[in-house]
Design a protein around this nucleic acid. Structure first.
Lengths: 328, 328
DNA sequence: GTGAAAGCGCTAACAA
DNA sequence: TTGTTAGCGCTTTCAC
């Protein structure tokens, strides 16, 4: 078996409690004793058993992360941010992927709830009522969604959409399409709302092309509708959709950006790799992850949890090759 | 506090042990009792505390996963496979990303070792001696690498490279370049070895263009060397490198595939999304993940661990747009 | 400042 | 088939 706290105690000539204290409350133990204990512990290669500690403290040192699809290139960066921040605070991260199955989310929360101190729900598909139940099972932080008083990290969709519209309007576009994601998606609604506000303010027309899967194939499927819409520029739900759209347009002989401008959202890695490179609204994904962890840790430290609302994360438009001046 | 096994016991009018048995060894308990217990447990919303269980059984129900970079599009599919298989066996997965820092890997193994039943090391950068130490700390399964007798999941590089060379030779190419990944990478060595064997057998020339980072930028950096090498086709270390290469070649006015054929490896999602779409050697990534879990669970069930070597995973060449007949 | 004792929630002998 | 007992490794009263 591994080396336990008692082994250390014996070797250091003290009691187990003293070892425990030397490790977790260093100041209340005599300096000399503490040093001896720490040296012995180190020498023996002692590692506290976190499960045992958790059993009594009620803290596991783990946080759970639930997301719809790891293979979606948006998430890895967020996960990275979460991991970095969590590890810094000496937390481990359980990752669970629901395979886009919204009904699996609540189940995962249930089964994870006891094994973690808190859960980060990334782009949850849950209904509000389920979300409320989830929040009752464990401390929860939402990413890419807001719901009631549950702490959340979200991007500033309104300002982001304003940037996008301003850019396109600056290029002379007067009729702009939006290829929406799933109707049930919070981001879809927020982005649509932002686009409407921005285009009204700018005095340009917004054409909703319809709802499509938030994937490359979704973008391909949207191509026909986009062409029919008679727009000179189109905003896609995300980069994946934008790329599918660009690809399908090319197959139909429509050149981007000379004949049609396309804007993505997310700034996923590959948006800068294709041809044309994609003009996209960048989101600080890793930062979002870090913030989610910060929020969660705050929540854990202060469960009374006075409203820990955060300012929305700023976005930044990256102008690349897929947008160009509107043809007269 | 949450509902414990004793709450269930009291409510069902039995002892805690009976509840425990009804849950984990259903057949040795009286059918009527079992049913009553299960109903009560369900009704009370009882969820066993796995940490407490682990404390006594020595099993945590967790497996650890360490990989160099979640943002590398190769990994998410592997992780998905691992998760699926793990969840099916009622295991949770701790994911840790080392940010490509090889020296962090062993540290992570150390800190994870006590919290998990076993660890899957994905494309480890560790030196053999470290790997041996790691294997001493916890049951370990390697992905994308072989080392001594440590169980591992790897693709069939020899056969894969043969497929690639045969394809190119069939197109009339007689002088083929290889853009290698990091020199220290096991995959680099294996792929190079496979390419050498296959090209010798096919009677064509293999030109090693040098070692580059396994990234899009690595591919960009390799472009000049590829052009100097005077080859008509080039095999890249992976898809990311291939895509960087294609992009840089286009910037220099070299068309793929009409002037130069390019082959990638991995079949990452985006390899099918660009223009040209990438001819690539497909690897069953998700299956690799599932297999890694299977291996690990076998290892846990039978720690005496008689050589659990697996057949290498078969690869499949996906012929797409980036390869074409050699110009005479 | 330190030790002894109790117990977190659970399972595994051992009895009955 | 079931209950009783002991204890996994650790922290935390409560004495001293």
């Amino acid at each position: 078996m591994a080396v336990t706290i008692r082994d250390v105690a014996k070797a250091a000539g003290v009691s187990a409690s003293t070892v425990s204290r030397a490790l977790s409350m260093p100041d209340i133990v005599d300096a000399a004793t503490r040093e001896r204990v720490l040296r012995v512990a180190d020498h023996l290669g002692y590692r506290p058993n976190r499960a045992a500690r958790g059993l009594i403290t009620g803290r596991t040192g783990n946080i759970g992360l639930i997301l719809p699809d790891l293979a979606n290139p948006f998430f890895p960066s967020v996960v990275k941010g979460i991991q970095r921040q969590a590890h810094e605070a000496d937390y481990q991260v359980f990752v669970a992927d629901t395979d886009e199955d919204a009904s699996a989310e609540l189940g995962l929360v249930r089964s994870l709830a006891k094994q973690v101190d808190g859960i980060i729900l990334c782009s949850p598909r849950m209904k509000p009522a389920e979300l409320r139940e989830a929040a009752g099972l464990a401390p929860i932080v939402l990413v890419n969604r807001k719901a009631g008083t549950i702490p959340s990290v979200a991007m500033d969709n309104a300002d982001g959409m304003r940037q996008v519209v301003d850019h396109l309007v600056g290029l002379g576009h007067r009729r702009i399409g939006f290829v929406a994601g799933p109707r049930s998606s919070w981001s879809t609604r927020e982005r649509l709302r932002g686009l409407r506000a921005a285009s009204t303010r700018a005095g340009v027309e917004l054409v909703e092309v319809g709802n499509f899967a938030p994937t490359f194939d979704g973008g391909i499927a949207a191509a026909e509708g986009v062409l029919i819409a008679g727009v000179t520029a189109v905003v896609a739900y995300n980069d994946l959709v934008a790329m599918g759209l660009v690809s399908a347009l090319r197959d139909r002989g429509v050149d981007v950006p000379s004949q049609l401008s396309v804007v993505g959202i997310d700034n996923i890695q590959m948006s800068a790799m294709g041809h044309p490179t994609l003009t996209t609204l960048g989101i600080p994904k890793e930062k979002a992850g870090r913030r989610a962890v910060d929020l969660l840790l705050h929540l854990l430290a202060d469960p009374s949890g006075t409203a820990t609302y955060e300012r929305e994360l700023p976005t930044e438009l990256l102008v690349r090759q897929s947008t160009a001046p509107a043809r007269p």
